[in-house]
Design a protein around this nucleic acid. Sequence first.
DNA 1: ATGTCGTCAGTTTGACGA
Length: 258
Amino acid sequence: MKLATWNINSLAVRLPQVLDWLAANPVDALGLQELKLVDEKFPFDALKEAGYHAAAFGQKTYNGVAILSRTPITDVVRNIPQHTDDQSRVIAGTLDTPDGPLRLVNCYFVNGQAPGTEKFAYKMRWLEALHRWLQEELKVHRRLVLLGDFNVAPEDRDSYDPVGLKDTIHHTVEERQHFQALLQLGLTDAFRLFDQPEKSYSWWDYRMLGFQKNRGLRIDHILVSEALRGRVIACQIDRLPRKNPQPSDHAPVVLTLG
DNA sequence: ATGTCGTCAGTTTGACGA
């Protein structure tokens, strides 16, 4: 089966591209981030016609996440339990698969703006809360996938300019330590289970011809629990949609499980 | 190189977030 993540930077603008991509890439489930719309405006009908169930957690203007799935989504959780947050950043759900239930946790991690800002402090608090919750979630769900826009470039090779951007947002030691802490829960970065092309990125700034010059970051990730690690067959970034007219600044990442 | 998008308030432009 195939699972994917894609920050689409406004579902209102990008719905046609999402439908086109799903037609060409009929994945079993897709986690979306940055919907930028309220649930009343979520396109349940268009997605149903495309063959997908959906669970949404939106808000006005900013943030917003959703899970699309070929099969029904159960036990849906919105945001991190016992962590007060007025921003819609997390949606989790359980999918039925031939090998049993699979827990999908789809997150739009905090951007954090810059070290030393209040937004960065919020990012740190959010990351701590996510870690605490996932520790519990992993005890209940052996087969768990954590995916989304992490807003962290885990290693220098995940950045087009690790020297020039050292200690800036997405690159700080603190953010990378939080990423490592997630791995220490038993999660594995599926992308790095395989040989990958050098300079593989999932996000490119709209400005300064970022994509054309491949000045990007790998900040969209798919992490799998120990029980799933041996089932991972492939993990790839699909750069094609970034070439579309009016693209999202992020590309989808696709995981194949056997 | 304060570079480009998307959204909103509220009027055709600026503020904010990324």
